[in-house]
Simulated scan of single mutants.
Amino acid sequence: MKSAMGQFQQSGMWAQVKEVDGWESLRVVATIEHNIVGGFQILWRKTRFGRIGYVSKGPVAVPEKQNLIEMLVILMREQALRNKILALLVQPPDDSRMTSDILDCHHFIRSNPLGVIETTLLVDVSHGEEFLDKRMSRKRRKNVRLAEKYGVTIREGTEHDIGLFFDLMCATCQRQGVKPNPPTEKSLRKLWLTFSRHNCLRVTFAEYNQEVIAGVINIVFGAKVNMWKKGWNFKYPDCRPNDLLFYETLHWACSNKFNNCDCIAFDRSIADAMQIGQPLSDIQQKSLHIFNLQFGGIPKLLPPARIWIANPLLRLFYEKVFARLAFFRDLSGSFLTGSQ
C-alpha cells in the first residue's frame, strides 16, 4: 500500500534494521472487500519487565476516517494482547488527523517515556532552487560561499565509508553528551545494506584538503528526504563544512523533485515561541537548532506519543503516578532506548 501518510518507520526495511538491536516485528494489514485500507507495524523486544512494543508513525489509514482509525486502534490493542506485549507506545504519522478522543477512549495515556521526537523542522524544496536560496538567511548563504572559497567539497559515500561516518557521528554525540543512536557500526551498516538496495539512502561527506571532516545520512522515503544523522569531527570550523553539507543536501533534494527535507528534530520551546510570535531568548538564539532554522525551515509540531498498558490496574497506577513524574523517562528509557 502506498500512502502519503506512510513513513520509513513503518516499512519492512526499518524492521530489518532494528533486528540488529534486538527488536522483533509484527505487521498487520487491514482490508475491506479485498482492498488494503490501512495497517501498522509493531516493533517489540523482551525486557526484564516483559515485552515492550512501539508503533512509530502508525497506524496508517487510507483514507483517515474515524471508523477506520478506530478499527486500527482496536487491532493494535488486540495484537499487543495476543503477542503478550505488556506496554505499547504509539506515535501516529506526522500528518495524521487522528484525534486524542479516539486514543483516550481506548486507554492510550498521553505520555512519552521514550522521549519520542514530537517537534521537527521541515524545509520546503518543492519550489525551485531560487526560492530555496531566498528563504535562507544571509549568514547561511555567506558561509556556503566561504566553504566553497576555502575549497571544501562534497562527495557521496559508499558502503566502505560506513565506519568513517560512524566515527564522525560518535564524535558529535560525545561533544553533545549523548549516546550514539544507532549504538553500533553494525547497526549502521545494516541500515546501508537494507535501504540502499532500494535507493532509499544517501550518504554525503564534506572534505577539506582531501580529509573527510563531516557527513550526513539521508533516508529517502516517499516525497521526503529525512536528514537522519549527522557527524562532524570539529576540525576546520572556519571552513564551514556543515553549511555546505546542508546546502548541498537541500539542493539535491530540490533538483530531484522532492517536497521537503525533514531535519528530524527541533527544539519545542523555540517552535512554541515562533508559533505565537514571541521573541526568542538569548539561550534559544544560541541553540544548535537555529542553524537548521536559518536554512529556511518551518517548525512542525508532531502528534504526541501515547502509551497503552495491558494490565488495567497497572495502567491506572501509571496514569495516576508515573505519567506525572519526570524521572520516569529515565527509568523506562533504560529498556526502551534505541527504538526510534
Rank of each mutant, 00 (worst) to 15 (best):
I85R: 01
L26A: 03
D95I: 11
R27G: 09
I32P: 07
G12R: 09
M76L: 06
M5S: 13
K46V: 09
S25R: 09
K46W: 12
M76D: 00
A15W: 10
M1Y: 08
D95S: 15
K65S: 09
T99K: 07
T99N: 05
L43P: 12
R82P: 00
M5H: 14
R27V: 15
I85V: 04
D95E: 15
A80H: 00
W14G: 00
R45Q: 05
Y54D: 00
H34T: 13
A4T: 10
E33F: 11
G22L: 04
I52S: 02
F8Y: 11
Y54C: 03
R110V: 15
Q91M: 06
I85Q: 03
R82I: 11
I85A: 04
W44G: 08
G53M: 02
V62K: 09
Q66D: 13
L75D: 12
K84T: 13
P93D: 04
N83S: 10
S3K: 03
K65V: 10
I52K: 02
S11D: 11
H106Q: 05
V17E: 07
I102P: 01
E33W: 08
L26Y: 01
S3G: 05
A87V: 10
K18C: 04
D104P: 07
S11V: 09
H107L: 13
V55A: 06
R97W: 11
Q10K: 07
S11A: 11
I36Q: 14
I69D: 01
G22A: 07
R48A: 15
G6I: 12
I69F: 03
V20L: 05
L81S: 12
T31G: 06
L75W: 13
K84H: 15
I85W: 05
L81T: 11
E64T: 10
L72V: 02
Q79H: 14
S3A: 06
G38K: 08
V29M: 12
R27H: 14
V60N: 01
G12A: 14
F108Y: 13
Q7E: 15
M13S: 13
L89P: 00
V29T: 11
K57I: 05
M1S: 12
G39I: 04
R45N: 00
R45M: 02
A87L: 10
I109C: 08
V28A: 12
T31R: 12
D95K: 14
G53E: 01
D101S: 12
L103F: 06
S111G: 09
L43E: 04
R97G: 15
A4F: 09
H106G: 03
H107C: 15
I74D: 06
L75Y: 13
R27Q: 15
P92M: 04
G50E: 02
K2T: 10
W23S: 07
